[in-house]
């Protein structure tokens, strides 16, 4: 019975994101100004824009990480699939379905294995064989099973920065999220690690929706299907990536992109 309920709830989180007229205030400061955006499922959507324009803030609205900020007020409608995520839902269940990868790799000070098993364990999976399977599968998805299979019991903090970030992705994948939010996941990494993560995005979008914040125009152009350009808390332009980069409609977008492409 209970199991049934859970499944229903789980099933009801879709993979598309629909935002209508969203605004957000940090105390008195308005960081997001009535943004509306439709993010399609199983595509990579990139958020670009200058520093402080509210990309991370909007991203964190999707898994309600902003709840942790004192004095943060949010208005507007946020739908994932057709679930109103600011309505009566279990936030932890939401975050299970909407995974997040942060700018700086933040592996827990535990072994590689325990890092990945942390999420599944949180949701009640304790059987060793099951966990083994999840760990292997997640690491394979993150394309690092071969690298790590012999050091599963070593501390995750001993990995290189790029490995740590991919481990964090594997950790997020272990709870099988339907949407993966990535906030500048490669900004702290070298070009080779960055390339690996970009390949990963391509692979992952077969099963999950990906929203990625990036400061790197080439990266956005390379990996995303849709791109949104933000400025001072507003969504200036949002369209297919090709369109944004070849024929932007808004003058500000064009300036930003050409300026950045150099």
């Amino acid at each position: 019975m209970k199991e049934n309920q859970k499944n229903q709830l789980e099933a009801s989180f879709g993979q598309s994101i629909s935002v209508k007229d969203a605004s957000l205030w940090y105390s008195d400061f308005q960081a997001i100004k009535s943004i509306s955006i439709e993010i399609p499922e199983k595509k990579v959507t990139a958020f670009i824009g200058p520093s402080g324009c509210g990309k991370s803030t909007l991203l964190k609205c999707f898994n309600r990480m902003n709840d942790l900020v004192q004095g943060c007020k949010i208005t507007g409608e946020f739908l994932i699939g057709d679930v109103d995520i600011y309505g009566k839902i279990d936030v932890n269940e939401l975050r299970k379905n909407v995974g997040m990868v942060f700018q700086k790799p933040n592996p827990f000070p535990m072994s590689v294995y325990d890092n990945i098993a942390y999420g599944p364990r949180t949701f009640g999976i304790h059987k060793r064989s099951e966990l083994d399977e999840i760990v292997e599968e997640s690491l394979k998805q993150a394309a690092m099973w071969e690298e790590l299979k012999d050091r599963l019991n070593k501390s995750a903090l001993g990995l290189s920065g790029g490995q740590q970030q991919r481990l964090c992705i594997a950790r997020a994948l272990a709870v099988k999220p339907k949407i993966l939010l990535m906030d500048e996941p490669t900004s702290a990494l070298d070009p080779i690690s960055t390339g690996k993560i970009e390949e990963l995005c391509d692979e992952l979008k077969k099963t999950a929706t990906i929203v990625i914040v990036t400061h790197n125009m080439q990266q956005a152009a390379r990996i995303s299907d849709y791109t949104g350009f933000f400025l001072l808390g507003e969504l200036v332009e949002y369209a297919e990536t090709d369109e944004i980069f070849t024929s932007p409609k808004d003058e500000r977008t064009e300036k930003y992109i050409t300026g950045r492409f150099g």
Binding site: N92, R95, N106, Y118, T122, R171
Partner: peptide, 18 residues
């Protein structure tokens, strides 16, 4: 303890207590 660790755990859907 770095806040990013807490965030990582919360973002995985773990509750505050856990």
């Amino acid at each position: 303890v770095s806040n990013s660790l807490r965030e990582a755990s919360l973002a995985l859907g773990a509750g505050k207590l856990r």
